[in-house]
Simulated scan of single mutants.
Amino acid sequence: MRRFHACLGTVLVAVGLGLVAPGPASAAPYCGIVWGSLAKSNPALAQAQVVNVRTGPQPCFDRLVIDLNGAVAGYSIRYVPQVLQDGSGLPVDLRGNAFLQITVNAPAYSAGGNATYNPADKNELTNVSDYKTFRQVAYAGSFEGYTSLGLGLRARLPFRVFTLAGPGTGSRLVIDVAHMW
């Protein structure tokens, strides 16, 4: 009995000193991110064309921006086992362990068929070598009024999608992918 009380006393002292304390019931989300990783889409079609793709690292996420010369109307962004090219359906080889297929409901060519976005290197749209989440951004084509990109990621992580008006009459489709859950 004396041994039991000695052990109980030791445990109570350890708990009182904070040496043995239960963890929190649930951890707070990383950077307040509560986005999730399910597909996000808007089926509307745009009269605008894709004119640029750019990226930027942020403290809690990596950002991809698609610039249009008019209003963003629709898009579809989802995790896929493999990104496929528009029209042909051929696979797009990407670095990473998870892949987002990004489709904006706007062509990368004018009504006359002239390119409004024609990247110099379709496999490396931007240099993301020092990013925490992005591994590669590749062009997957523009076909029948839709333009697709492939985004190779470190892992399947939460992402959000939103649109911004401007500059001028243009707009932007923004995809943020968190660095962690």
Rank of each mutant, 00 (worst) to 15 (best):
Arg3Asp: 13
Arg3Cys: 02
Phe4Ala: 09
Ala6Asn: 08
Leu8Arg: 13
Gly9Cys: 05
Leu12Glu: 11
Ala14Gly: 03
Ala14Met: 14
Gly16Phe: 09
Leu19Phe: 12
Ala21Pro: 01
Ala25Phe: 07
Ala25Glu: 13
Ser26Glu: 11
Ala27Met: 10
Ile33Val: 15
Ile33His: 06
Val34Asp: 07
Val34Ser: 11
Trp35Gly: 09
Ala39Trp: 02
Ala39Cys: 06
Lys40His: 08
Pro43Val: 10
Pro43Thr: 10
Ala44Ile: 01
Leu45Thr: 14
Ala48Asp: 03
Gln49Ala: 14
Asn52Ile: 01
Gly56Val: 10
Gly56His: 10
Pro57Asp: 04
Pro59Gly: 03
Arg63Trp: 01
Ile66Arg: 02
Gly70Arg: 06
Gly70Cys: 04
Val72Trp: 00
Ala73His: 04
Tyr75Ser: 05
Ser76Asn: 12
Gln82Leu: 03
Val83Tyr: 05
Val83Asp: 05
Ser88Glu: 01
Gly89Met: 02
Pro91Ser: 09
Leu94Cys: 02
Asn97His: 06
Phe99Leu: 02
Ile102Gln: 03
Tyr109Phe: 09
Ala111Met: 06
Ala111Phe: 02
Gly112Asn: 13
Gly113Phe: 04
Thr116Val: 03
Tyr117Ser: 07
Pro119Ala: 07
Pro119Ser: 06
Asp121Gly: 04
Lys122Met: 06
Thr126Glu: 12
Asp130Arg: 15
Asp130Glu: 11
Thr133Arg: 11
Phe134Arg: 13
Arg135Cys: 06
Phe143Ala: 04
Thr147Phe: 03
Thr147Lys: 08
Thr147Arg: 10
Ser148Lys: 15
Ser148Asp: 05
Leu151Ser: 04
Leu153Cys: 07
Leu164Glu: 15
Ala165Gln: 13
Gly168Ala: 15
Gly168Pro: 00
Gly168Cys: 01
Thr169Val: 12
Asp176Pro: 08
Ala178Thr: 12
Ala178Arg: 12
Ala178Gly: 11
His179Gly: 10
His179Ala: 10
His179Arg: 08
